[in-house]
Structures are given as structure tokens and as C-alpha cells.
Simulated scan of single mutants.
Amino acid sequence: MLTFDIALRLATAALAEGAHRGANPLTVAVLDAGGHQVVLHRQDGCGIVRPQIAIGKAWGALGLGFSSRGIAAATQRFPEFFNALAVASEGRTIPAPGGVLLRAPGEGIVGAIGVSGDSSDVDEACAIAAARAVSLEPEPATPAV
């Protein structure tokens, strides 16, 4: 189960990783397995749409069962499906890296974290580092950068 305490620690760890990397201001959304927002942190200086992007990255990963990096790749192969998905999800799915599934050993998927604010690769790296910091298994397991 993804508790509020774990979600808060995830968001804090993602922001710390962003600071370590010298990232632009970040927004971090943590959703439980049902897609409900548990925590949203938005650093000073983030654009006004960053919360929706972070949530959309995490929500899309949960909805399709694979990372938003995987979603981004699949949109290239199946554009008609993802056009329909955009309508079906009311635009809530963001097909860009930065949405990472979170697995607890022996429990399966417990939620997802979405990060937005820097390049998608940096966003994803911050999300993966956060998952590892709280002993959850991220998908994808390793960042692209």
C-alpha cells in the first residue's frame, strides 16, 4: 500500500534528486494504485501547467500498466490508438518520460510518480531515484540519463 508518508518521502526524494542534478524547478505528483492523488509538490518557478503534466504522466502509466516512456514509444507505433486514448482519457494521459510505476516487493503496483519541469529524461531520472530512495521498484528500472 502507498501511504501518505511514503508518498511524501517520494516527492521529497524526487525534488532532492532534481537539486542534485541542477534541474529546473520541478513538480512531483504521487498517485496511489487507483490513480488518486496522494501528494503534489510544485517548486517555486514552475509553469502553471506542470501539475497537470506530472499527474498525467503518472496517471497514464497507471492506466496502461507501463511507464510514460513506454507510452511515448508506443504512440509512434500506434498513433490511431493513442489519438483515441486521448479522447477516452479526456486528455489526462501525457506520453512523455517522467511517469514511473511503483512496485512494492510482493505487492505489485502500489502507485506511480510523475515528474515535470526539466527535460523528460531528467524528470524520469528524478522519479526513478525517488522510488529507489523509499525501497520501491520503479518501472523503468534505470534512467535514460
Rank of each mutant, 00 (worst) to 15 (best):
L85A: 14
G91H: 05
P105H: 11
I113T: 06
V134P: 03
R50T: 14
E107H: 12
A125R: 04
S135G: 00
D5T: 11
D123N: 14
A13Q: 06
A112C: 12
P79A: 08
A141T: 02
Q37C: 09
L31T: 07
V134L: 06
D118R: 06
I109C: 13
G117V: 03
A131K: 09
L64D: 02
P143L: 01
A133M: 09
R21F: 08
A88E: 12
A96R: 13
A96C: 07
V30N: 06
V110S: 05
L64A: 09
A58G: 08
G18K: 05
D44R: 09
A23S: 15
P95M: 08
R92M: 10
I128G: 07
C46M: 13
E124D: 03
S135D: 15
A61Y: 00
N24D: 12
V28R: 01
L15K: 13
N83Y: 08
S116Q: 10
L10H: 04
A133V: 10
P25T: 02
I48R: 11
V115M: 09
S119R: 14
A88S: 14
T3Y: 07
L102Q: 04
G18C: 13
I128A: 08
P105W: 06
T12N: 11
G65S: 09
A131D: 06
P143R: 05
F78S: 12
V38S: 01
P97G: 08
V145D: 13
R132I: 15
V100P: 05
G98D: 04
I48V: 15
A7R: 00
Q52A: 15
E107K: 11
A86H: 14
A125H: 04
G117S: 09
T12F: 00
S135L: 08
Q37A: 13
A73P: 02
R92P: 10
T3D: 11
I55F: 13
V38H: 01
A125V: 03
V38G: 01
A96D: 00
A7H: 01
I53T: 11
D5S: 14
A14V: 09
A33R: 15
K57G: 12
T142W: 07
Q76R: 15
V87Q: 13
V110W: 03
E137V: 10
D32P: 11
A133I: 06
P138F: 03
P138T: 02
F81Q: 11
I71Q: 07
V134H: 00
A84D: 14
A72I: 03
A23E: 09
K57I: 11
G60V: 05
I6D: 00
G56A: 07
G108R: 05
R92W: 00
M1K: 03
S116M: 08
F78Y: 15
G99R: 03
G65V: 10
A23V: 10
A127P: 07
A104H: 12
I94E: 12
C46P: 04
M1P: 13
I71A: 06
A61R: 04
G60H: 05
L101Q: 07
E107L: 13
Q52G: 06
A129P: 06
S116G: 13
F81C: 05
R132T: 11
A13W: 08
C126Y: 01
I6R: 10
G56F: 02
A104W: 02
V30K: 05
V39G: 07
S89C: 12
S89W: 02
A104M: 14
L40F: 03
I113G: 01
R42W: 03
R69E: 12
C46A: 14
D123I: 03
F78V: 02
